[in-house]
Computed example of a mutant assay.
Amino acid sequence: MIGPFLDKVPGGRRLTVVAVAVLRAIVVLMMIRWFDSLVLFPLAFASLVLAKVYAVSRSAMMPMVVRSDNELMAANGRIGRLTGIMGFVAGGPAALLHLIDSRVSLGASALAFLIASVLAFTMLPRTAAAPNRASSLEQEELHRPAITRARFAIGSLRVTSGFMLLHLAFWLRDQKAGTAWFGLALAVGSASTLVANSLGSFIKRMKLSEHSVLVGSLGIVAFVGWVAAYFGSITAGIVLVGVVNGFGATGKLAFDSIVQSNAPDANRSRAFAKYETRNQLAQVAGGLVAVVLLPSGALGFAMVGIYATLACAYYFYKY
């Protein structure tokens, strides 16, 4: 609801990024305070929601930091690779800090969020993301069948991603060295995202259509979900996280390409913010299911397999 307003206000998205970084630091500090309490569960969910708000604002600002729309795909790929590198690099120290105390690792992340808020305030542009209202042509283009179908596919991939993140986080709490395992899972997920974003140009050279990439991504996630459910081990869960994150990133590149080719007259900032909002809500919904149900490891992996199978079949049929 407030997204269109933020797009029109000069510096609106920039202030959102700053506020989210500060709030994430506060939430992490609260997690340290109530680490052994049931309050940790809603705080973890709040942290996930704030992460999604940041992702939406980042998508809205991307067209503001490139010289032309033709550079958006490359810029998104570079941001994805950088995110993967930083996530992978941070995963190791986080696991080591856990050996001292899990709260030390959380404290380090709070410091990182505060530094991010300062950098966002001083470095991000202060211009409006989308000062004008959407035209009828833009609205017509954004409702084309190709975009509608692709929106379902990428949303389904985000559901599995959000579910696996919190499913592993809470399931591993009861396992030996659970926090260290979870740190490794985050590192693997970041590395797979990095690899996926780096393969964007390779996929284009293979001349695969964007819809084929989305079908393949859902199919592979479904297959690995079933295999992980069969084994039910921590290692299987970490492999599934890598697959979900990697093919989720591949699907995102395909989805962005579909939006660009089917809605050439749309305001990129507004379009990407709109769809990223829906994608992040899908990821939050997946995480909420994991928090509410708290399934066992194997059952959670099976849930990913079932959902991805149904989503793949539906998308393939509609396409």
Rank of each mutant, 00 (worst) to 15 (best):
Ala290His: 09
Val18Gly: 07
Phe121His: 14
Gly12Met: 09
Asp256Thr: 13
Ala177Lys: 09
Gly300Arg: 04
Phe5Pro: 00
Leu72Phe: 00
Gly3His: 00
Asp256Pro: 07
Ala146Ile: 05
Ile100Met: 11
Lys52Trp: 01
Thr235Phe: 13
Ser190Lys: 10
Phe231Ser: 07
Glu210Val: 01
Ala229Lys: 02
Val18Trp: 08
Ile115Trp: 11
Leu111Gly: 14
Asp7Phe: 08
Ala302Leu: 15
Phe5Gly: 03
Ala21Phe: 12
Val195Gln: 10
Gly248Val: 02
Ala75Ile: 00
Met303Thr: 02
Leu157Thr: 04
Leu199Ala: 15
Phe88Thr: 14
Ala311Pro: 08
Met303Glu: 03
Ser68Thr: 10
Ala236Tyr: 13
Ala263Lys: 08
Leu214Ala: 03
Ala236Phe: 12
Arg144Val: 05
Met1Ile: 03
Leu40Ile: 11
Gly11Thr: 01
His167Cys: 06
Phe163Val: 04
Ala129Trp: 02
Phe316Leu: 10
Asn245Leu: 05
Val289Leu: 12
Ala150Pro: 00
Gly189Cys: 09
Gly300Ile: 04
Gly155Ser: 14
Ala150Glu: 00
Ala55Cys: 00
Val56Cys: 10
Arg14Phe: 04
Arg67Asp: 15
Phe223Cys: 08
Thr309Gln: 05
Val17Pro: 02
Phe45Leu: 15
Arg103Thr: 14
Phe88Ala: 15
Ala153Thr: 15
Ala228Leu: 08
Tyr307Gly: 03
Ala282Gln: 10
Ile234Ala: 12
Arg151Cys: 10
Phe163Met: 04
Trp34Tyr: 14
Gly162Asn: 12
Thr122Gln: 07
Thr16His: 08
Phe255His: 14
Leu38Gln: 09
Val241Gly: 06
Ala263Gln: 09
Thr16Asp: 04
Ser217Phe: 00
Ala74Gly: 13
Leu40Tyr: 13
Met164Asp: 05
Ala308Gln: 12
Leu186Ala: 14
Tyr54Glu: 11
Val28Arg: 09
Ser117Met: 03
Phe113Ala: 11
Phe35Trp: 13
Trp226Asp: 13
Asn132Met: 07
Ala236His: 11
Gly300Asp: 03
Tyr315Arg: 01
Gln175Gly: 04
Ala271Pro: 05
Tyr319Val: 13
Val227Asn: 02
Ala51His: 07
Ala196Ser: 15
Ala196Tyr: 03
Val239Tyr: 08
Asn197Trp: 08
